[in-house]
């Protein structure tokens, strides 16, 4: 028998523990990416021309280079400038910055979906720029971008195994450790694959649910 079910069952608790780290990194990374992406999109649209250009180039640069290299860069750079980052924190920062650059584009498409008249109407009602952005524009800009957000959330989730490169004991690292101790790769790696498959499917369902919940009544 190539796939040993007894062995697979015995390593489940270890993998389950590591899965928590994977999920934690994804949630924190995505929360950060949502903030970074929003800041970048707002800076590009409502900041000055210089700021907009700088943000645009930085985002393009981040999107055109591999996440793995960015993870290493952040991890090794931090101690150079006098900050000790635990691997998990460095990994979450890298995930957040990388996906923030993608989410900036998503927010941008959301902003473009809000008609100019909404700004003008808010101004006529005496709302200032910040209140308009917060109460009027964001609310309408977010609903149509939920599906794209969901896709990036799932994509980020599937890239968390890269954190094993800086010794974060997430799922993939845990599977590798088990394999190194027992010389069995089939069960741990296959189980990790199945876990990702199930979680991706769950993520897709969750996205559809969120999309329906956020429907703006007209």
């Amino acid at each position: 028998m190539i796939f040993d079910f007894g062995f697979a069952l015995s390593i489940m608790p270890l993998l389950a523990k590591a899965a928590l780290t994977t999920i934690f990194a994804t949630i924190c990374g995505f929360a950060l990416a949502m903030i970074v992406g929003l800041a970048a999109a707002v800076a590009r649209r409502y900041g000055g021309r210089g700021l907009a250009l700088a943000v645009r180039f930085t985002a393009e640069f981040i999107r055109s280079t591999p996440l793995l290299v960015q993870i290493f860069f952040l991890f090794f750079l931090a101690p150079k400038i006098g900050i000790t980052l635990p691997p998990l924190v460095a990994g979450i920062l890298a995930l957040g910055l990388h996906y923030g650059a993608y989410l900036a584009e998503v927010y941008r498409s959301g902003f473009e979906a809000v008609p100019k008249g909404q700004w003008e109407a808010a101004k006529a009602l005496g709302l200032n720029r910040w209140l308009t952005l917060r109460l009027v524009v964001l609310r309408q800009a977010i609903q149509p971008i939920v599906p794209a957000m969901g896709n990036y959330f799932i994509a980020m989730f599937k890239e968390t195994p890269l954190l094993s490169a800086i010794a974060v004991i997430e799922l993939m690292a845990s599977a590798k450790l088990i394999a190194a101790e027992t010389f069995r790769y089939v069960e741990p790696v296959t189980l990790v694959g199945i876990f990702f498959l199930l979680m991706s499917a769950a993520g897709a369902l969750l996205t559809r649910y969120a999309e329906q919940r956020l429907q703006i009544p007209r």
Binding site: K158, E159, T160, P161, L162, S164, M172, A175, K176, Y185, V189, T190, V192, G193, F196, L197, S200, A201
Partner: peptide
């Protein structure tokens, strides 16, 4: 599409 690239590489 449902599993991770690194998992596929290891597999």
């Amino acid at each position: 599409r449902g599993t991770s690239l690194l998992v596929q590489l290891f597999w």
